[in-house]
Design a binder for these strands. Structure first.
Lengths: 183, 183
DNA sequence: ACCTGAACACCGTTCAAGT
DNA sequence: ACCTGAACACCGTTCAAGT
């Protein structure tokens, strides 16, 4: 009779989706990883739906952590590049968790909306520090977030083809222009 | 004993995911829609996996069609705006099909890779017509595609919150700068 | 050629029973 | 409080049988 600890449950599920693929996530599979009966999970989360929520929440936190860490000791353009690289690295290192972020809809996961906002807020701070107005910073942050997310998401679905790092660096360089004042 | 036509199967499945949500897609559900036994589908596609492939392929074609149509009669910046608006409209009008595009991984669906390439190619033509070199056109097209896809994907997962059209128009406007020659 | 219906394996979920 | 194991509904898939 193995005992379940919620933090172990979460890290186990997050590691599992990265290794076995997000589609392999199931109550039975995680119960098997923890050496408990499938029904034992229902004490700690609301079934499969709850399991998916936990993975998505963990993925969000991990992504934000990485971005924040990458931004330390940088500013301006180089901060955007550093954060962009961290975003991509997370998706490459943790494909299952990133897939969880792509699938989750905030309609089902109310707490997830705040995490995407957190990402934008981190970007916003960088632009504010560059001297942009609050409104300009928010718009620039959203655009930057969109471009970074789009590239990484497209690379994610394109599977493990060739390395697109140079195209990504080009994108991050052109992103500097969105911070410039409007014509 | 209802008869199955493959084109009806595809349009039925595509409509179904838009109405009932992508996660509701199942062999049983589509069989029910077509008034046949679940096992009857296996004559026309490879089970659930095949069903998902068909929906993803249909979604790709529909998206590319819309983008191409939007580009007719426009050029340059206004073409990018028109194609960007068409991209977003597809995701808003067909959330289930767009979800299929977000989930499909080309590792499993070899034919899907070519469709994403098709989108980039359409963008590339626009930039070439603007006078950019082939290499510059490709890079600009990829960046533009990333930004558009990212915004629409983030809006998609954020659920049916407020309307973000004005932020999107801002993004499309700033995208014009990626077509400018490098500093 | 293509659909039906039985059959099987497997999963999600509930719940009484144990500790 | 929390895990087990039985039980149930449901789904994906296969296949022999029909037409």
């Amino acid at each position: 009779m193995a005992k379940i600890r919620i933090d172990v449950l979460i890290t186990t599920a997050a590691s599992f989706v990265d290794d076995a693929g997000y589609d392999a996530l199931s109550v039975s599979a995680i119960a098997g990883e923890l050496d408990v009966a499938p029904s034992a999970l229902y004490t700690h989360c609301e079934g499969l739906k709850g399991l998916r929520s936990l993975v998505a929440a963990a993925a969000s936190e991990n992504l934000v952590d990485r971005i924040r860490t990458a931004a330390i000791g940088t500013a301006g353009d180089s901060a955007v590049v550093a954060m962009g690289l961290a975003y991509r690295r997370f998706a490459l290192d943790h494909p299952g968790q990133f897939a969880a972020l792509l699938r989750a809809r905030s309609s089902d996961e109310p707490d997830l909306r705040s995490t995407n906002q957190t990402v934008v807020e981190v970007f916003t701070l960088v632009f504010t520090a560059m001297g942009l107005s609050p409104r300009q910073s928010t718009l620039a942050a959203r655009s930057t977030h969109s471009a970074i997310h789009g590239f990484v998401a497209l690379e994610h679905v394109s599977g493990t083809g060739g390395d697109h790092e140079s195209e990504y660096l080009y994108l991050l360089r052109t992103l500097q222009r969105v911070a410039e004042p409007e014509n």
